[in-house]
Design a binder for these strands. Structure first.
Length: 424
RNA sequence: GGAGAGGUGGCAGAGUGGUCGAUUGCGGCGGUCUCGAAAACCGUUGUUCGCCUUCCGGCGAACCGGGGGUUCGAAUCCCCCCCUCUCCGCCA
């Protein structure tokens, strides 16, 4: 969430910036400022009254100690009306605080100045394209046929066990999945990320911290008896490690990564182009997360983009990097780069990674701050994360792009992990 | 699941109604001493909100797991919730 100070001091700027995200903020901001004004007014009054109250209470304490009962009783008389007044005032404060929070949480993050205007995917800007788009033979198949042909991923079995969107990986399919996870983690380790194995269920506070709750609860699986949520991405548990934490500047940036399964209900998002591995309820992903100094977070973002680019290059996949336009960005992000790989049989680009800087938007929810060495003031950190990488669409592209008449070729970098170089 | 104990500042650990944001120790930071370091000694040491201040900062309020209550006054008393630990049972 945005800080109240920013809204207070740069109202017009906030409204202008949010227009890039096609968000009309004026009305909400006016309401916020109104609530903020009355909140501060009431706060000042109650603080003053409370301080009077504290003074008299201490006086009574002293009088009692000295055995001065009559004066103590007289002083006590004075407190009754004060007490009533404080109660009334602070009673007003509660709904105002609540309203203020509900309103402020509705405002999306401000887009970075480099974010292009636009409404949807068509307005995203391709900043780079790499790799070579392969020409497939006449009888080339889409991955949902290939997985049946070689019996490596079984959707029907997943339906039997759980439901649609929960594939079962078998034999070389399972091995390939495990190989990719290991490859991604090893590359992350080389790049200086510390591996984390977090819980894959989180509580409500964690869901709020990274911005999934309260709005996107319908997108998460909810274990109701204990009120836990299955994570939609490792971003949630890993970033929440730093909830309610004050770091020192020399600890930054924190670089963590985690492999986890991810669970998404994808309510209402099924339609065309979601066959096979293109969209699932459960999938595997390695996520990289950084907690950065606000003055250097965009250097971090660039490093993360390079890291992801390195991964898709090593896998030999044709890719492109997009800078998302305001209309296509997430609620929480300030700047997002999407990575897409070419899926040769489907003849389309598939999103395999999204790398974002959230600046202080999540940090403000998380209350993750830092201090300069020897400094007194706390400042909010910047948080960033990116997929490095999400597996299913990588698998889809690998299978389709590398298919030959005699089987599917495994990229050389993965062979040490799979132990085989062909699925056939 | 049954029984018990407990949640206090970065950590350890006092505090059972009246200047307690909280004794003390450790750690951290600054200094004295030293060629330098260690030791010793001295000083300092949380967060959030509000008001004031050009900076430094000052004043006030709140925070002792969370929420409510009693009281002029709560870390201390009462109620609800959450969590942790120990023992027993079950068990990957």
């Amino acid at each position: 969430m945005l800080t109240i100070n920013l809204i207070r001091e740069k109202k017009e700027f906030v409204i202008e910036r949010l227009k890039v995200k096609n968000f009309k903020a004026e009305e909400i901001i006016d309401k916020i400022l109104e609530l903020d004004t009355s909140r501060r007014e009431i706060q000042s009054k109650t603080d003053f009254l409370q301080s009077e109250m504290n003074r008299i209470s201490k006086e009574i304490g002293t009088l009692m100690k000295n055995g001065n009962k009559a004066e103590a009783e007289a002083a006590r008389e004075k407190t009754y009306s004060l007490k009533e007044e404080i109660k009334t005032l602070s009673g007003k404060l509660i709904p105002i605080d609540n309203d203020l929070k509900t309103e402020i949480v509705r405002l999306p993050n401000l887009p970075h100045e480099s974010v292009p205007d636009g409404f949807g995917a068509d307005d995203n800007v391709t900043v780079k394209q790499g790799g070579v788009i392969p020409q497939l033979h006449e009888t080339a198949l889409p991955h949902w046929e290939l997985i049946k042909k070689y019996d490596i991923i079984d959707f029907d079995l997943g339906i039997k066990l759980t439901g649609a969107g929960f594939p079962v990986y078998k034999g070389k399919g399972a091995k390939l999945e495990r190989a990719l996870v290991s490859f991604f983690l090893d590359e992350g380790e080389k790049a200086g990320y510390t591996e984390i194995m977090p819980p894959i269920m989180v509580n409500e506070d964690s869901g709020f911290g990274t911005g999934q709750l309260p709005d996107k609860e319908g997108q998460m699986y909810h274990a109701t008896p204990d009120n836990f949520y299955l994570i939609p991405t490792a971003e949630v548990p890993v970033t929440n490690i730093y909830r309610d934490v004050i770091l020192t500047a020399d600890e930054l940036p924190k670089k963590n990564m985690a492999y986890t399964p991810c669970f998404r209900r994808e309510a209402g998002s099924w339609g065309a182009d979601v066959r096979g591995l293109n969209r699932l309820h459960q999938f595997d992903k390695v996520e990289i997360v950084r907690i950065a100094h606000p003055d250097h977070s965009y250097e971090s973002l660039n490093e993360m983009v390079s890291h992801v680019e390195n991964l898709v290059s090593k896998l030999g996949l044709p890719y492109r990097i997009l800078r998302l336009c305001g209309g296509d960005m997430s609620f929480t992000s300030a700047l997002t780069y999407d990575f897409e790989v070419w899926s040769a049989a489907q003849k389309r680009w598939l999103e395999v990674s999204s790398v974002s800087n959230f600046e202080s938007f999540q940090a403000n929810r998380l209350k993750c701050r830092f201090k300069e060495k020897g400094g007194k003031q706390t400042r909010l950190v910047h948080t960033l994360n990116g997929s490095a990488l999400a597996l299913p669409r990588i698998v889809a592209a690998l299978l389709e792009n590398n298919q030959t008449e005699s089987g599917i070729k495994i990229p050389a970098v993965l062979v040490p992990y799979t132990g085989f170089d062909t699925i056939g």
